[in-house]
Design a protein around this nucleic acid. Structure first.
Length: 630
RNA sequence: GCCCCGGUAGCUCAGACUGGUCGGAGCGCCGCACUGGUAAUGCGGAGGUCCCGGGUUCAAAUCCCGGCCGGGGCUCCA
């Protein structure tokens, strides 16, 4: 008999394991539950050949959606039946596929209905009795379709997903506001897109699914540069950060926080990672993300790890008293989030199971204020993307009626950024938002990922129990604008991929100076000049820059080479000559060697770092003291 | 999650098809000499359960099965 793997995820659905068997038999032994199903003699044992044995587990959450579950399960079973042509079907209650069993009477009800439905389709069907220990033997046929498992969900089962999908329309809006229709089938011939290669590549990747077939470069780079690495001892998609990667991550986090607070006056909060599934609103939120959330049981409580910041935020806002005078209220959280993405979907830092997402939620009085807020956030994220310095693409998704009504407003925003935009017009609203936009990134191999997004949520907040007090003293639901700059990890991906694109074009790859783990490396020509090198470094450090000193016993060439392979933007060589003239010999990445004095170098650094966050070195001052992490 | 490909020293990889002196190279690391001027100074040394678990065989890094991790594809991306 072939071996079966019965390990299935804990979840919230009906589980089926279908075995096409040459031979199957069972014999009832003794009761397994307090009130087992009443039995007639003819059901105490059974022996069949060429049969389809369906092991069925009814899960707790199946209760309440019995009808659709039974319908879908019947469909699934008949589907397999037609493919393998057995001469009968056996429904076999099998509790062991689950940790979250439904109550026995509900389970029995489902099994009976299932039997009835299948019989109703004219098939010969048997049902093994429920609530009894049974001995069984099975001889699996072992062909490719002989062993299958199915997960059946209520309502939106894969088996009834025949719902006709109305197609979106696409248009391109040029920076000057000119509008052009776009047929996705004619992307290659489109003359407007020919002017905007990045946007064209984005549409190929995002809308047409034309994929790069290549490994994105950042995966190699994140390890070469000792920034980030896999951690096989954790779950897949959970990474570890070496000091230099941690520093970059922390600077980006500080940047997100600083921008939100300084530019928008948002209020920063923090909420828990874990939420109880027994809370109805949490359960409802979790249900939106079926099978994509981490669940864990502690004692007799079941928890879900948040997959977005909303969980704790909405809870907090429920008990917050806000008045119309205070709106819009902007709340910022730097939230660690967890999503159980399918393992095959994870790609380096592009898609993770654990990531850090800064988000801002704005609570607004009405649609008018919501739209003003949307525009403010649009401008905010545009400044933010421009400040980090990567190429990006702009895409809007708008419900068509809303677009028609607010066309000029949207075009005004596009003109403001000065880049062309792809607009997807949805025939009708199917999400909580009427409109959103995304700043998307296109990587070195032609793949893409969403960075910033702003969403105008028009289902007002009453559904979450969030209210403000209006002028008339009455409680009202508000309009929520959801927004995020995208995960910090994904920004690291974008920065590394941006550098990889430079490399591909034959340019020198680099990180912006404000994000470089080491901004200046001082290289003494020999031991004699080490003290002077340290003095130079200390002066730069006092001025707020990350500097280290290569004190190793290596040749100058070797030390320069190492600094270059680390992508250090400024390399200062000091020796006899520098000591004498008090000038510095500065090798600027991608430019060449220049003689500068200390103040000139500091001016240059100041100019590149501007008012971006500053953090100290996370690695030793002396290069010889730093271990190699990867 | 499914399909295809891969996993050999800290890192990058050769060896595998045709099982048997194949456990190898470069980088890194350690030691000695060199006292350095803008992308690799020379010489020497240490390092490996050949991813893990089973199987086939007189014999397995090598062949077979299962698992784990990674890459690509499919699907997915509230």
């Amino acid at each position: 008999m072939p071996r079966h793997t019965l390990a299935l995820k804990s979840g919230e659905s009906l589980r089926l394991l279908l075995i096409h068997a040459d031979y199957f038999e069972y014999h009832v032994r003794e009761p397994a539950v307090k009130k087992p199903e009443q039995l007639t003699d003819d059901r105490k044992s059974l022996e069949l050949t060429n049969t389809l044995v369906v092991f069925v587990t009814v899960e707790r959450d199946d209760e309440g959606k019995l009808e659709s579950i039974v319908r879908s399960a019947t469909h699934a079973i008949c589907d397999v039946y037609e493919k393998v042509s057995p001469s009968s079907v056996v429904i076999y209650p099998y509790a062991h596929l689950s940790q979250e069993l439904a109550s026995p009477d509900k389970a029995l009800e489902v099994l009976r209905k299932l039997e009835e439905q299948i019989a109703g389709r004219g098939l010969r069907v048997f049902r093994a009795p429920f609530g009894w220990y049974k001995a069984f033997s099975i001889k699996c046929k072992g062909h490719p379709l002989a062993e299958l498992s199915r997960t059946i969900k209520g309502e939106e089962s894969a088996y009834e997903e025949v719902v006709e999908r109305e197609e979106s329309e696409f248009i391109i809006v040029e920076p000057n506001g000119e509008e052009h229709p776009l047929e996705l089938s004619e992307v290659e011939e489109n003359s407007v897109l020919a002017k905007y290669p990045l946007l064209k590549q984005f549409i190929r990747s995002e809308e047409l699914g034309i994929k790069p077939h290549k490994m994105p470069e950042h995966i190699r780079l994140m390890r070469r540069l000792e920034l980030v690495d896999y951690e096989p001892a954790s779950d897949v998609g959970h990474f570890r950060y070496y000091p230099k990667g941690e520093l970059i991550k922390n600077i980006l986090e500080d940047f997100a926080t600083q921008m939100a607070i300084r530019d928008l006056g948002a209020m920063k909060i923090e909420t828990p990672f874990l939420y109880r599934l027994s809370e109805p609103d949490i359960a409802e939120q979790a249900a939106r993300f079926r099978e994509r959330d981490y669940r864990l049981r502690v004692g007799n409580k079941e928890f879900v790890l948040r997959f977005a910041g909303d969980f704790g935020l909405f809870r907090m806002m429920k008990t917050t008293t806000m008045t119309y005078r205070q709106l819009p209220i902007r709340i910022y959280e730097l939230a660690k989030a967890f999503r159980l993405e399918q393992s095959g979907e994870l790609v380096g830092l592009r898609r993770l199971r654990a990531f850090t997402m800064p988000d801002i939620h704005s609570f607004c009085r009405d649609l008018k204020q919501g739209m003003e807020e949307y525009e403010a956030l649009f401008k905010y994220y545009t400044r933010l993307v421009n400040a980090i310095g990567i190429e990006y693409v702009l895409a809007f998704r708008v419900v068509k009626d809303f677009y028609v009504e607010h066309k000029e407003w949207i075009k005004r925003m596009i003109r403001e950024v000065g880049v062309p935009a792809l607009i997807e017009l949805l025939p009708k609203r199917k999400h909580y938002w009427v409109m959103k936009h995304e700043y998307q990134f296109v990587d070195s191999v032609g793949g893409n990922a969403q960075l910033c997004t702003v969403q105008l949520d028009v289902e007002d907040s009453e559904r979450y129990g969030i209210f403000y007090v209006d002028e008339d003293g009455k409680k009202k639901g508000c309009i929520i604008v959801h927004s995020s700059m995208g995960s910090i990890e994904r920004w690291i991906y974008a920065l590394l991929e941006e550098a990889a694109k430079k490399l591909k074009r034959g340019e020198v790859p680099k990180l912006p100076t404000w994000l470089s783990p080491i901004q200046v490396r001082v290289v003494p020509v020999s031991k004699e000049y080490l003290n002077y090198a340290i003095k130079v470094a200390e002066e730069l450090e006092r001025r707020g820059y990350r500097v280290d000193v290569d004190d190793r016993e290596e040749t100058v060439s070797a030390k320069i080479r190492d600094a270059e392979t680390e992508w250090i933007p400024f390399i200062v060589v000091v020796g006899r000559e520098e000591l004498k003239t008090k000038k510095l010999s500065v090798r600027i990445r991608g430019e060449g060697v220049r003689k500068m004095d200390m103040e000139e170098l500091i001016e240059r650094l100041k100019d590149e770092v501007k008012d971006m966050p500053k953090l100290p070195r996370y690695t030793p001052k002396l290069v010889s003291l730093k271990p190699r992490f990867s």
